[in-house]
Design a protein around this nucleic acid. Structure first.
Lengths: 334, 334
DNA sequence: CTGTTAGCGCGTTCAC
DNA sequence: GTGAACGCGCTAACAG
């Protein structure tokens, strides 16, 4: 791109690089009004912008942060990213972006690369909180969001998963449902899923596992069949009971609805449904979808502010979880 | 983060930094098999990774590219980004990410910052192709996608907008619609919108503007009313005519449906509809939505490969547009 | 008020 | 196999 350096400008202006540097750093006391104006003119004329990487170098500073996203294709993550990016741009940090495509090995190599690129800190949207790479990291320069590790090792930003689901489940119970199911991607050790499931169990005390329906990730068609037959059986055997489903995110919600439609069941007549996450398109589904709205953008801004603060104060401290509240949106799907 | 440098490794291994460097660069001819093995051991033992920024510095190379996204919240852009990121990671480039939140001034400052950060090249998803900042850029190190400038100044990657819409519009005509409308965010000078609109006009020769319905961007509620009354009037005055709508993207589609539902009109009975873009959730809308599917990921990978090639051959050449084909998905919405 | 110059951090490279 | 100069673009202490 642009090749102009502080040296070129100094020559063009007929002054020393020191003067140019002083000008750039607003040390106007060190030059005459005349040279000041002249340097200003040359700089704007040639559209010169100092190289910020070199500046970091000279100042022995580091304004680069890394971001590792599990899957940028997920609209939730994209919105979080917009929040992160807003905060860091504002603060004059540059942001190196990596995406793991939901693959743990890719994530590992992304994080290694971020380290090799000498970033000051990393924000992580973990693919799998068990990834051993995390054990090599320190809470001094890491913030996670959405999913956390089982034992809290890093500061994290997340929504009030348990409480929100508990509340929504209670609403469904009040609405007269006899049998409720929690539909989710495999819980594995993903805290987000586990916490949402715990909220479900808190509201309605089923034995663990009896009312948990796993859905495979997109693309794994074998186990999809298992899911579909499970749903079909529940519906066929429901008799006079009112059955309802809570889906742990929008993608799972779409999966459930596809299966239901395939078997010609419609909500809220044949079954009730509610979901975590809200998106635009839910407003045009009829009947309206009851859902849990989360402020994804704020998850991003909060995570970014948190990391920025840690880096500036150089204090990691005890890892804590920062909770962003959610809103229950009740429509007509149960 | 990690503090190990080539110096530390050299000391730990009891060799010179030169030897370590040679090892890292696979110049094994310059050391004995014994030291080679020993250095290898030390490096893996301490999990050392050379600082890639310093390496670029020393080699006077530059493996940093910048990305300027108009609005990462748009699922289309996010998918494109995943493609870009896959290609560049693979190739050992790091990627500085910026997001303009659909604001031209933010975009301008983002691009300026990318330049100041001394990136080798930039991929741009333009907010407004008229942004004067573009005039300061050269085709040698820029690739755009989705939207292009009026006069082609940079290599661009886009879908076959005109042909796809033309084809879909024809299908609607064949289905017996008497009156068709093209619903779109304001055309302004955004090529994507203009080209889609041209495809519409090619299929059905209305005088320019008579069947073009602008929708405001999300958040601009004043002009939303204008849109809503316009739709209402068309529906009320349609008499026995079959009217149909083509929406230029998914967001506009949702807007249209909201308005229709508000007035108790349902497709395909009261009106027909089709849209550019396909998303997951369209598969659960009933009746099914006819739409134009584009391979967003590939737009990203192609744009990235293109830029990479330009940078490596140092040849900009004549700006051309690279077209990615689309697929028509016909369901039951018209 | 302005210029000179030694770093900054970390790898590369070449003469020995 | 090594030592040490060198490079990037900028900053800042100091000399003049």
């Amino acid at each position: 791109m642009e090749k102009l350096t502080i040296n070129d400008i100094a020559k063009l202006a007929g002054v020393s690089t020191a003067t140019v540097s002083n000008f750039l750093n607003h040390n106007y006391g060190k030059m005459s009004a005349k040279t000041r104006a002249h340097v200003a003119k040359i700089i704007t004329e040639h559209n010169y912008h100092p190289n910020s990487v070199a500046r970091d170098l000279a100042k022995n500073d580091n304004k680069t942060i890394g971001v590792s996203i599990a899957d940028i294709t997920n609209p939730f993550s994209a919105t979080v990213l917009s929040g992160i990016s807003a905060v860091f741009n504002q603060a004059g940090y540059r942001m190196i972006f990596t995406n793991a495509d939901n693959d743990q090995d890719t994530e590992t190599s992304n994080i290694l690369r971020l380290q090799a690129q000498n970033v000051a800190g990393i924000i992580i949207d973990p693919v799998n909180p068990d990834n051993p790479i995390y054990q090599t990291l320190s809470n001094n320069d890491i913030v996670m969001f959405d999913r956390q590790m089982e034992t809290l090792t890093f500061d994290s930003v997340a929504t009030n998963n348990t409480e929100a689901v508990e509340e929504m489940t209670k609403r469904m119970m009040i609405a007269g449902y006899d049998e409720l199911y929690f539909v989710s991607w495999p819980l594995e050790k993903v805290s987000t899923r586990i916490k949402r499931y715990q909220g479900f169990l808190r509201a309605i005390r089923y034995p663990d596992g009896t009312h948990l329906i796993p859905v495979p990730y997109p693309g794994q068609s074998e186990s999809l069949v298992t899911f579909q037959t499970q749903i079909k059986r529940i519906m066929e055997q429901r008799g006079n009971k009112k059955v309802g489903f809570f889906t742990m995110n929008a993608s799972v919600f779409v999966q459930l609805l596809q299966t239901m439609q395939h078997n010609n069941y419609t909500y809220p007549t044949d079954y009730g449904v509610a979901t975590y996450e809200e998106f635009d398109w839910m407003t045009v589904m009829r009947p309206g979808i009851s859902c849990i709205r989360q402020d994804s953008r704020r998850i991003g801004t909060d995570a970014a502010k948190l990391l920025k603060k840690k880096l500036e104060t150089k204090e990691g401290g005890v890892p804590t979880t920062h909770i962003i509240p959610t809103t229950l949106i009740i429509r007509d799907s149960f």
